[in-house]
Design a protein around this nucleic acid. Structure first.
Length: 465
RNA sequence: GGGCCUAUGGUGUAACGGCAGCACGGCGCUCUGUGGCAGCGUCGGCACGGGUUCAACUCCCGUUAGGCCCCCCA
């Protein structure tokens, strides 16, 4: 990049990453607090795994042919020759930890949550980053549908906790290997004669991963898809009853869900249950949630808005903006796949950037916290006494701010006003000598001089009201 | 990987083929014992390269960066 010789080149953050600046911290902290409390209440304990793993974990765990593995991983070779990868998702690492630490011998099931960074080399866009954060829940060692239901339940509780009512959880069952093999054959058979009419990606899918054919949204592929056999109809008895039970749980929990027989998801390790949830955004576009029946998009009659030639997208575009806010499923084969004893498991993850964007759009971001007190000091003696007073306030749980570096009372009060302090605590030379302090209510300007010994009590009383 | 859009002080913006102005912000002063208001001063900018032109921040091309969309997903 060419730059004037005299200016050093500006170094920007890498594409697809973002800084969380101080003003944004309150919402992140509040969200993480909910995550922690909700997870723990429902019996999920925190687990932390490394930000990078052996590359093989993901290629065999997530799947050789998946988008994540084929084009989105940050992989590198270390000086020692290890092939490592920045974790693109959290489930395989958890499975690895489960095996490595013999957690199959702990009381089952193992319920863990995590909350951290993940990395995928994609083209960034709204709600999509190369380094992003997820809150994940995993249940290992439980094959019951109730586990699937609980995971979904906790995520939806989280949405509700933050005031979101209009969301929909799309669910599907993609069966187990036992019922999938025959289905795959049927599907391949059905598609064999129609491959030529499919989109480029689907031609690839036909060879690599036929199930994903059902995922395509290309117009021409949708047409072909209409007549395709449905896995849902071909499930084995065990898978069928598992799915039925899950739906019953969802009903019971009053979770708004929709059966989406085309939901497949891009990761190989899923078995049986898969789900993805969407939140309706405040500015509601014309997008409709996919219902079980709606396979073909309605054609708009041409005369409806014919004239105006391409009015160009408006500021607030009308694009569907369908971004999953959380998703997941059951992965009964993953643990075995990455070298452990066969262990049924399920889990999911919620995208924090996406969620926080929703919170912001809905205007529910918590405000920055205002300090109770702003300490103003005049003169060296008062300045020296300030630290001790600050400690007294801290011990009493009274929040405060200061600007010790400033000298004039007016500039300090100005800052105090700026940060929104309720009270100013003023200590000048005179007060410092007399062991007194001035307490000034910022909103009214009313102030009183009180003995320093009574400061904390007085403040406590005032702050209560 | 493909497509569309954008680029002016730290932030948000304005204008014009010839002077880059405003608001917020930072610092200071008016005012070394009283904030919110005000006034003054000060800091600070046309992303980069090339072309057209007497003259380019402005028009054109390219580069770079960013945003958005498709794909896919959190």
């Amino acid at each position: 990049m060419a730059r004037p010789k005299d200016k050093p080149k500006m170094i920007q953050r890498p594409r697809g990453t973002h800084d969380v600046l101080p003003p944004e911290q309150p919402i992140w902290e509040a969200v993480r607090k909910t995550i922690r409390e909700l997870s723990r209440f429902y019996g999920f304990e925190r687990i932390e795994t490394p930000h990078f793993e052996m590359t093989d974990l993901f290629t065999t765990g997530v799947g050789e042919a998946t988008d994540i593995v084929t084009k989105q991983m940050y992989s590198f070779k270390t000086r020692g020759g290890d092939q490592l990868t920045l974790r693109p998702e959290g489930t395989a690492p958890v499975a690895r930890a489960f095996i490595e630490h013999g957690m199959m011998n702990w009381p089952q099931p193992i319920k863990v949550f995590y909350d951290g960074s993940f990395f995928r080399h994609e083209n960034p866009q709204r709600g999509r980053y190369r380094e992003f954060h997820q809150w994940g829940l995993e249940v290992l060692g439980d094959d019951g549908a109730v586990a699937d239901a609980e995971v979904i339940h906790v995520f939806t509780l989280f949405l509700r906790e933050w005031g979101f009512k209009d969301f929909i959880v799309e669910v599907n069952s993609i069966g187990c290997p036992a019922c999938r093999a025959p289905f795959r054959a049927q599907l391949t058979q059905y598609y064999r004669s129609k491959v030529r009419g499919l989109c480029k990606d689907c031609k690839e899918r036909f060879k690599e991963n036929p199930l994903r054919l059902l995922d395509c949204t290309e117009e021409k592929c949708m047409q072909v898809k209409k007549g395709a056999p449905q896995l849902l109809d071909k499930l084995c008895e065990a898978c069928r009853s598992h799915f039925k039970l899950l739906l019953e749980f969802l009903e019971e929990l009053q979770i708004p869900y929709a059966l989406n027989p085309h939901l497949v998801r891009g990761l190989d390790y899923y078995t049986r249950t898969v789900f993805e949830a969407y939140v309706d955004e405040p500015i509601k576009p014309s997008a409709e949630p996919i219902s079980p029946e709606a396979v073909v998009p309605e054609e708009k009659s041409a005369d409806e808005e014919a004239p105006a030639p391409v009015e160009a997208p408006k500021l607030e575009d009308k694009s569907p903006r369908r971004l999953a806010v959380f998703g997941g499923g059951r992965y009964d084969n993953l643990v075995e796949l990455v070298g452990g004893k066969s262990t049924p498991a399920c889990g999911g993850a919620l995208g924090l950037e996406r969620f926080i964007a929703l919170v912001r759009e809905a205007g529910r971001a918590p405000a920055e916290e205002k300090p109770n007190v702003f300490l103003v000091q005049l003169g060296e003696l008062a300045r020296k006494k300030s630290f001790r007073i600050m400690e007294e306030l801290r011990a009493a749980g009274i929040t405060m701010a200061e600007s010790l570096g400033r000298d004039s009372i007016r500039s300090q009060l100005k800052v105090g006003d700026r940060v929104g302090a309720l009270y100013a605590l003023i200590i000048g030379q005179k007060e410092a000598l007399d062991e007194m302090v001035i307490l000034r209510e910022m909103s009214s300007g009313i102030q009183e001089t009180i003995p320093r010994s009574r400061l904390v009590d007085t403040l406590k009383r005032k702050l209560k009201t």
